[in-house]
């Protein structure tokens, strides 16, 4: 558990460094629809299509509120070793993961 969280912190730090110079480009409207579909359907395999949780934890504003956003971005991009959370970096860019986290924190669109 502590190894996990230490790793997460490390990943978060790496991620932050990597992102310092990046511009926060918003995905195009078409890409947003793809990302929404990906989250609801494929992340939904474990987190539930309504994101209420399943084998993976719930991804609702109230369950994510106390977690730093950049840590969540790192979790999406790199996964969480030792858990069932895989890395999604082959399928989305970091700024797209950041867009997803932003939407998750405010209540994910349908």
């Amino acid at each position: 558990m502590s190894i996990d969280s230490a790793l997460l912190r490390l990943l978060t730090a790496c991620c932050l460094v990597g992102l310092a110079g990046a511009t926060a480009a918003e995905p195009s409207p078409a890409r947003r629809q793809e990302l929404i579909h990906l989250v609801r359907q494929d992340c939904g395999s474990c987190h539930g299509m309504t994101l209420q949780g399943g084998l993976g934890p719930a991804l609702l504003p109230r369950t994510l509120a106390d977690k730093p956003a950049e840590g969540l971005v790192a979790t999406i991009v790199y996964g969480r070793p030792g858990t069932a959370m895989p890395p999604w970096q082959g399928f989305l860019a970091e700024e797209e993961a950041r867009w997803i986290v932003g939407r998750l924190l405010e209540g994910f669109p349908k």
């Binding site: 494929d42 395999s45 895989p86």
Partner: peptide, 13 residues
Amino acid sequence: YGRGEEKLPVFKM
């Protein structure tokens, strides 16, 4: 059965 090789990511159980 994995023979100690690194696992590929599992995107669905």
